[in-house]
Amino acid sequence: MARALLLLLLAALPALAEGLGLGRELAPEEVQAYDVTPIVLPDGRGLPEGEGDYAAGFEVYAFECASCHGPNGEGAPFDRLVAAEPFSTELPPHRFAIGNYWPYATTLFDYIYRAMPFQEPHKLEPDEVYALVAFLLVENGIVPEDFVASRETLPKVRMPARKRLRLDPLTRKLYPWIELP
């Protein structure tokens, strides 16, 4: 009986070592197929190929975005997209925007590509999104008008708001290894 138990246990061991054996393993092409809204990291990983500039972005913006964010990104009826420095604690929250509050340019691509336009997300091609990002960065006074947004250039853009961003002190205490990109 004891031996039978031991045998049973031994037989069960490999199963335990490999976990529950549930879920199906995905081939790399399958993972790719599920990655419909790639998550963009601040170092640029996840950004697709393509590029776009201010002039192209101006067109797309007028057509796809202005009705909700204002012709110049001034934000009506929805979020303001254009606001310059300086930032201060006197600034009303509805004036927080890309120029004074967004710490990473990569987030702009990530968010617009996955979530905008609001009523029909995922309708824009990567080139159009790069163009919108270039347009918004120029309008916010962060890059010169001839800036071309791409996988190479976006991670290098220094956003004015980055200098104010820090890790919450409590979080630093709980997770001392965390560093903001």
Binding site: Y101, P103, R164, I178
Partner: peptide
Amino acid sequence: DGTVDAFTWV
């Protein structure tokens, strides 16, 4: 002081 804290989770 105008600093912005990220990851204010708890």
